[in-house]
Design a protein around this nucleic acid. Structure first.
Ligand SMILES: NC(=O)c1ccc[n+]([C@@H]2O[C@H](COP(=O)([O-])OP(=O)(O)OC[C@H]3O[C@@H](n4cnc5c(N)ncnc54)[C@H](O)[C@@H]3O)[C@@H](O)[C@H]2O)c1
Ligand SMILES: NC(=O)c1ccc[n+]([C@@H]2O[C@H](COP(=O)([O-])OP(=O)(O)OC[C@H]3O[C@@H](n4cnc5c(N)ncnc54)[C@H](O)[C@@H]3O)[C@@H](O)[C@H]2O)c1
Lengths: 224, 224
DNA sequence: AACCGCTTGTGAACGTAAGAACAAAGTCGA
DNA sequence: TCGACTTTGTTCTTACGTTCACAAGCGGTT
């Protein structure tokens, strides 16, 4: 039934490809030449069958009886993720979190170039940040358009997030990473991913709750 | 076939409950008394059938013909997520990102109390942070044990993450939120959630790539 | 007290994802 | 050149998640 067009990679697989890529970079740094699905899966913390299936969407890359060529696999994954070209990004909202993001070298090393940092607070505009400085939000559109920016990162308070998002989208941004705890509405051609840290803690809280309830129901049952 | 024990809430649902809770808090602040699944779903950005099914795992909470009582629903969700008791947390690694996390008031307001901030850098130990100060990592175990800490947040470099994780687990922590780009190995009773920001950008990159390829394949096809 | 309109809760259909298992396809040594 | 051995790529099965569609249930109205 479920024929998948070649080149159509499942969403769950895409998320894992990023992990494999990071692991492979580590292996390449250790001068590892080939790696088996079993080894790679162990390091990446996934099932080896799942890993092989994930990689099979990229074509037949491995060598039976041997494994995968680390360099080749890395290139294949990078190319599937569209990382052969550097992507330009902007960051809007350079507060606590924005400063941490702006100072993080891991984005640049993985192919993302931040061409602008924007804030509405006049007290922050002009401040040096990374190898650049904070611009006034009014310059957002011109920078986005001049650089063909495709990814916008939002780290403003929740109240401002939708407005900022609308401006980014109008200026031509087609992917948004949102750190504000708010649901963004965008046109169909725009992708949004959210990072909701409080929700992460709440999910952990749920499991804590479940674990302690299980203890009460199961182990203390013997009291009756 | 797929009988689900009462009280067994699917993982995907748990993640959304946190979102509903946030939305409901906003509605409660606006003094909204009742809300229909349609309205709530629209605000939360999900399908209304999915929302109703999610809520149905918590029992029969709504009133047919009317909707859900905002206050009651909020309490039900909070209780399902184990948020009736405040949870104690520690943060390990107070660098760029750690500072942002420590200064964020949204965790406390949602029921999470940070009882310790730890770093290995002697230059940072003693520094004031939030309403507390940074402790030396050597004090980790005693603080965790004294406070019955259940959640540990790791914001150290990747190299240190597994070691820190092991120490947290040995001290009794059973949930970990990991910001370092590394795969953590833990015993079966410990839950780990990871936040991988570079991966988020790479996933967006994938979709950018796909969109531009689609443009080439589909719309420019008319050149032939 | 009977009806009507509205909204929930859920069964059934569909789609996506995970995992076990194994045939196919390669390497390497003799 | 052949055979033993290793590991991939894929098929099949089972589990999980989403969406549709509608009967059941409730409040308000006459
Ligand atoms: N700091 C954290 O660890 C953390 C954790 C979880 C979620 N968040 C969320 O991330 C977002 C940012 O958090 P933060 O701690 O950095 O907050 P912050 O208040 O320190 O920073 C917000 C920044 O956005 C700027 N800003 C406000 N409106 C703007 C606009 N319209 N255009 C451009 N800039 C604007 C402000 O001037 C400020 O500099 C918030 O939505 C917060 O809820 C932060
Ligand atoms: N800053 C970001 O925006 C960002 C984005 C994505 C991922 N990350 C990841 O989050 C982690 C932290 O990032 P950062 O930018 O804050 O780095 P950072 O170098 O600024 O901070 C790391 C802190 O951890 C401390 N540390 C090191 N080893 C430790 C140990 N064994 N025990 C306790 N503390 C220790 C260091 O002293 C330092 O203060 C890194 O793994 C990074 O890859 C950060």
């Amino acid at each position: 039934m479920s024929e998948r067009r070649p080149g159509e990679i499942p969403e769950a697989t895409v998320a894992r490809l990023a992990v494999y890529l990071r692991v492979l970079t580590g292996l390449a740094d250790d001068s590892t030449v080939t790696v088996s699905s079993e080894e790679l899966a162990a390091i990446a913390g996934v099932n080896s069958a799942k890993l092989r299936k994930d990689l099979s969407y990229l074509g037949s890359i491995g060598t039976r009886g041997v494994g995968y060529d680390v360099t080749l696999l890395r290139e294949k994954i990078a190319s599937s993720l569209g990382l052969t070209q550097r992507r330009t990004c902007v960051l809007v909202g350079v507060g606590n979190l924005g400063h941490a993001l702006a100072g993080y070298p891991g984005f640049s090393s993985r192919g993302f170039t931040f061409v602008g940092y924007f804030d509405v607070d006049p007290g922050r505009v002009g401040e040096s940040i990374a190898d650049s400085q904070i611009s006034d939000i009014s310059e957002l559109e011109s920078v986005v358009e001049a650089n063909g920016v495709s990814i916008g990162v939002i780290a403003t308070p929740a109240e401002a997030a939708q407005t900022v998002c609308d401006r980014l989208v109008d200026a031509g941004v087609t992917s948004i990473l949102n750190f504000a705890p708010s649901v963004l509405t965008v046109p169909g051609n725009v992708d949004v991913r959210k990072v909701d840290l409080a929700a992460e803690l709440q999910i952990l809280s749920f499991h804590e709750h479940r674990k302690s309830r299980g203890l009460g129901d199961g182990l203390v049952e013997s009291v009756g």
